[in-house]
Amino acid sequence: MNFIGTLILILTATTIAGHFSARLGVPAVIGELLVGIVIGPGVLNWVQSSTTLTQFAELGVILLMFMAGLESDIGQLRRYLRPALAVAMCGVILPVVLMGATSLLFGYGWSEALFIGVVFSATSVSISVVVLREFNALDTQEGATILGAAVADDIIGVLLLSLMVAVLGGSASHGPSTNLGLQLVFQAAFFVAVYLLVRWVAPLLTRISERLLIPTARTVTAIVICLAMAYLAELVGLSGAIGAFFAGIAVAQTSVKKVIDEHVEPISNAFFVPVFFVSIGLSVDFTNFVASLPFILLMTALAVLTKWVGGQFGAQVTGFNRDSGRVVGTGMVARGEMALITAQIGFNAHLLAKPMYVDMIFVIVLATLVAPLLLRWSLSKQRVAATKSE
């Protein structure tokens, strides 16, 4: 099927699946993920991953995180930096230790076990963002902590990944260099660029765009800022989604925020974001599923619990109550694109054998399917508790 036909199928199927998901009271992202599994190699094999589809999916997650940044309160992010760091650290340590140790029990070597732990230390907050936006919770203390923790999580995960590839002698690279010291310098420079963007560059560019005699000048300028920051983030070894998130924060401090929100959100949610979620489902392959089922189920349970418990513990020790801590913990469960990218790098660097790589994809997808349901449940539970206390 050519790409246009594939796109028609994806958009039609995700729209229908989203409708029925809403009727059942579950997040639309669940329906979109299941569409990817059904139409992909796992079931019907109508759609296979391709370079063009992957690029569309990358644009989807970039635009999704840009919108998250646009709707985030920078004051809230600063205010909850301490709990965000605590949540990130706890959410990295538990998966690395427990999931790595469990892999050893299944007969995998030390290097494979450690790398499996690193894969599941990643968090894909883009999936949680969909649910947080549904509940208008992005600018709450929980939303700010989840977003801040995801940024720290991404940095820690990239450092662990770089260290493993460098120490174990893999052939893959991520960013400009596998040298850890040099990569740290590049990443520090990136965050300096983020500060300059928020403080001076974005306001200047948006003022210029308002003087241009083109109706779409402000929207185009904002998208260019978004894509440029995503590109820079990837150059220094971070996720492009993180760069897009900071771009959204920068644009949110300007006078064009409302216009950009109205122009970018409809096209991203209708066109690019569904492709991103479908692309995750396309990674599923049931060839050796039965033989690997015990390992997959146990690792999925650990993938969910280690992030949930780690995130909730980190939130509660920094002052959150139990309900808020539960929201933060469940908001950190999703793995999505960051774990998939990390697993792919490990596979290319010969740190993971093919069967193990396929099993990791299953666990990532299953944990990602469960994550929005858990977050939606914890947000609903929090609202019920808040209503009773009034």
Results as ranks from 00 to 15, higher is better:
residue 388 K to A: 15
residue 165 V to N: 05
residue 141 Q to V: 14
residue 142 E to K: 15
residue 275 V to R: 00
residue 364 I to W: 09
residue 331 G to M: 06
residue 230 A to L: 11
residue 244 A to F: 05
residue 35 V to S: 01
residue 262 E to A: 15
residue 81 L to T: 14
residue 90 C to L: 09
residue 27 P to K: 10
residue 390 E to A: 14
residue 161 L to M: 11
residue 85 L to P: 02
residue 158 V to R: 02
residue 126 S to D: 12
residue 59 L to Y: 12
residue 352 L to N: 07
residue 52 T to G: 06
residue 331 G to H: 04
residue 342 T to H: 05
residue 8 I to M: 10
residue 7 L to E: 00
residue 277 F to K: 00
residue 62 I to L: 10
residue 56 F to H: 00
residue 102 T to L: 13
residue 22 A to Q: 14
residue 337 E to W: 05
residue 63 L to T: 14
residue 365 V to E: 00
residue 221 T to F: 03
residue 185 V to K: 08
residue 358 V to E: 07
residue 78 R to E: 07
residue 210 E to I: 00
residue 168 L to P: 01
residue 124 S to W: 06
residue 125 V to C: 02
residue 369 L to E: 03
residue 359 D to M: 15
residue 120 F to K: 14
residue 121 S to Y: 04
residue 245 F to K: 09
residue 291 A to G: 15
residue 122 A to E: 09
residue 315 A to L: 02
residue 374 L to Q: 06
residue 303 A to E: 00
residue 304 V to W: 07
residue 254 T to V: 01
residue 106 F to L: 10
residue 165 V to A: 08
residue 328 V to I: 15
residue 185 V to F: 12
residue 237 G to F: 07
residue 189 A to C: 14
residue 231 Y to G: 11
residue 309 V to Y: 03
residue 73 D to R: 11
residue 305 L to K: 08
residue 325 G to M: 09
residue 288 N to F: 12
residue 133 R to W: 10
residue 338 M to R: 01
residue 203 P to K: 09
residue 299 M to H: 09
residue 164 M to F: 14
residue 210 E to P: 10
residue 248 G to T: 01
residue 110 W to L: 15
residue 355 P to H: 08
residue 179 N to H: 11
residue 37 I to N: 03
residue 287 T to R: 10
residue 22 A to L: 13
residue 226 C to W: 09
residue 99 M to P: 11
residue 207 R to W: 05
residue 245 F to I: 00
residue 326 R to H: 10
residue 185 V to T: 05
residue 157 G to M: 11
residue 385 A to I: 01
residue 111 S to L: 13
residue 285 D to E: 09
residue 240 G to T: 01
residue 233 A to M: 04
residue 93 I to Q: 02
residue 71 E to R: 07
residue 160 L to G: 08
residue 231 Y to E: 15
residue 135 F to A: 02
residue 13 A to K: 08
residue 140 T to E: 00
residue 82 R to K: 15
residue 244 A to S: 06
residue 314 G to I: 12
residue 321 N to L: 05
residue 270 A to Y: 00
residue 261 D to A: 13
residue 16 I to S: 06
residue 277 F to A: 02
residue 26 V to A: 10
residue 146 I to A: 03
residue 57 A to I: 13
residue 115 F to K: 04
residue 173 S to N: 15
residue 11 L to Q: 05
residue 135 F to G: 01
residue 355 P to N: 07
residue 82 R to H: 11
residue 151 V to S: 08
residue 135 F to Q: 01
residue 179 N to C: 03
residue 383 R to E: 15
residue 175 G to C: 07
residue 358 V to A: 13
residue 148 G to I: 07
residue 166 A to H: 09
residue 171 S to G: 15
residue 106 F to R: 03
residue 197 L to M: 15
residue 259 V to S: 12
residue 369 L to N: 02
residue 125 V to E: 07
residue 348 N to T: 12
residue 312 Q to A: 15
residue 104 L to E: 00
residue 69 G to S: 09
residue 1 M to W: 07
residue 171 S to W: 11
residue 97 V to M: 06
residue 189 A to E: 12
